[in-house]
Nucleic acid binder design. Structure first.
Lengths: 240, 240
DNA sequence: ATATAACATTGACCAAAATCAATTTTCAAT
DNA sequence: ATTGAAAATTGATTTTGGTCAATGTTATAT
C-alpha cells in the first residue's frame, strides 16, 4: 500500500494533488507481475481500470482483423495508461501488451472518475498531460510525412539522449529492434537497412544495441533538418 | 456581441457551461473577415488568442525551414483552434492559415485560462474534447501505417457521409483536391491517381469534386477492411 | 556447454508513392 | 466571350520501403 502510494505521487497528473486524492486511488489498487507477451486489454473492451508501470515496458497498439498492427506508443516505467478511457465511454481506445516482464499497478477507473469530477487541480494536470500527448502525436504524423526511415531513427536516437551533452555519447536502444521498428512504423528489414544507412551518412558506431558517436551533431545535422522544431527539442525539457 | 455569444454556445467545450462563462469569453472577443491565404499565426509564436471559425475553413500545419509542410488538420466552421496553447506555455503548437475566405472570432487566451482554472465543468469538457482529438490522431497514424493512398481516400469519403444512409449517395469534396491530398499526407499527383484507382476498384462515379455511388458498401468493402475500427465509425456518432 | 528459439541481417525482387515535366481543365476576372 | 492563373491530370522515371526467403547472431534454458 505505501508502495502504491509512492508510485502514484511521482505521476505527472497527480503532481501537487492532495494526499487524500492519491489515497482514494491507491485504496483499491493492486500490484501484479506480468510476463512478457501478456495482453492487459484489447481496444473496444469495456474499461474497468487504468494502469501504472512500476517496472518494465508496455506497448499500446491497435490491430485489424487481418492482423496488421499499428503501434500507438511504447511506454517505460513511471507512465500510466488507459486513463483516457473515462472520456471515451469507458472503452479502451487501444490494446495494451506487456513487452518485457513488468510490475504493473492496476487502479479502478471509477475512483479516478469520481475524483476528477470534483478535483479541478487533477483535471488541469490531466489537461496538461493530454496537451503534451497531442503535440507528441502531431510530431509523429509530421515525421512520418516528411522524414525517411533513417532520419526517423536518427530523431528517435536523439530524443533518447541528453540533448545538451557535449562530446562523445554512448547510448543503448531501450528495447529490441523489431519492436523499435514497429514503434517507428516500419518493417524490421527496413529498420536494419535504414540504421546501416544512418551509420554511413553520419559516422555513428553501432555495436548490437549500443550506439556511439563523437558528437551529437552527427545526428542533428542529418535528422533535424527535416523537422519543424529546432534542435534541441524543447518538449523534452518539460517532464511527463 | 450577441452574435459572438451565440457562436460560442455551440462549441462542445462550452456545452452546459454557465452563461457567465461564455460572457466572460465573449466580452473581449472580436469577429474578423479573413481572405484565403491569410496566416493567423505561426507555430512557436507566443499565443495570445484562440479562434472560432464562424464560416470558412482553416488549415493547421507545421513546416520545416526547407519548406516541407505537414498538415495537422483542416477545420470547418464551428470549430475552435489554438486553445490548447494554454497548456503549452502559451506557445502555438502549429501554424494556422485560412484556406477559404472566412469569418473568424478571436478570443483572448487569458480569459479562457482564468475561467478554466476555477471552472471544473469547462475543464472536463475540454478533457473530453482532447481525448477525442487524441483518438483521432491515433487513427490518423494507424491509417497512414496500414492503408494505402486509395484506401485512405475511401475512408475519408466515408467519414464525410452519413454512415447509416441507405441506397444512392452523392457527396462533394469539402475543399480542393490539392489541399485534400496534403490533408491525407500525399502528393497531388498521387491523390489524382489514387482516386482513379479507387473508382476502378469500387465503381464510384467521379465528376470533378462530386462523387456518386449506388451504395455506401462500395467504399466500406474496400477501405474498412484495413482499419482496426469496425464500420460504422462510432466516433462520428458523438459530436465535436 | 549445447540446443533452441527469437532476433537480426542480407539479398533479390516488387509495389507504392514521389518527383519531374508536360498538358489539359476549370474558374474567375476582365 | 476571352484570357490568364490555378488546379488537376497524365506520362515517364526514380526513390523508398515492403515482401519473401535464406542465413547469421544472440541470449537463454536446460
Amino acid at each position: 500500500m505505501p508502495d502504491i502510494h509512492n508510485s502514484l505521487v511521482s505521476v505527472s497528473i497527480f503532481k501537487n494533488c492532495d494526499e487524500s486524492t492519491i489515497n482514494n486511488l491507491a485504496r483499491d489498487a493492486a500490484v501484479h507481475q506480468h510476463p512478457k507477451g501478456k495482453v492487459l486489454f484489447i481496444h473496444g473492451e469495456e474499461a474497468k481500470h487504468f494502469y501504472f508501470i512500476k517496472t518494465g515496458w508496455v506497448k499500446l497498439f491497435r490491430e485489424t482483423l487481418d492482423g496488421s498492427q499499428a503501434v500507438v506508443d511504447i511506454l517505460p516505467k513511471g507512465h500510466i495508461f488507459g486513463e483516457t478511457s473515462i472520456f471515451e465511454d469507458c472503452i479502451y481506445p487501444y490494446s495494451a501488451e506487456v513487452v518485457q516482464d513488468s510490475e504493473i499497478i492496476t487502479i479502478p477507473l471509477r475512483n479516478l472518475k469520481t475524483e476528477i469530477e470534483t478535483n479541478n487541480k487533477l483535471a488541469l494536470n490531466m489537461l496538461g498531460s493530454m496537451a503534451r500527448y497531442r503535440r507528441r502525436q502531431d510530431r509523429e504524423i509530421e515525421h512520418r510525412t516528411i522524414q525517411n526511415a533513417s532520419q526517423r531513427i536518427g530523431c528517435f536516437l536523439l530524443r533518447l539522449t541528453d540533448q545538451h551533452a557535449q562530446g562523445e555519447i554512448t547510448l543503448h536502444l531501450p528495447y529490441d529492434k523489431t519492436l523499435l521498428a514497429s514503434r517507428l512504423g516500419m518493417q524490421p528489414e527496413t529498420f536494419s537497412r535504414a540504421l546501416s544507412k544512418l551509420r554511413d551518412k553520419t559516422g555513428i558506431e553501432i555495436q548490437g544495441s549500443t550506439i556511439k558517436m563523437d558528437s551529437i551533431h552527427q545526428l542533428t545535422d542529418y535528422s533535424c533538418a527535416v523537422c519543424s522544431s529546432e534542435f534541441p527539442c524543447k518538449d523534452l525539457e518539460a517532464a511527463e
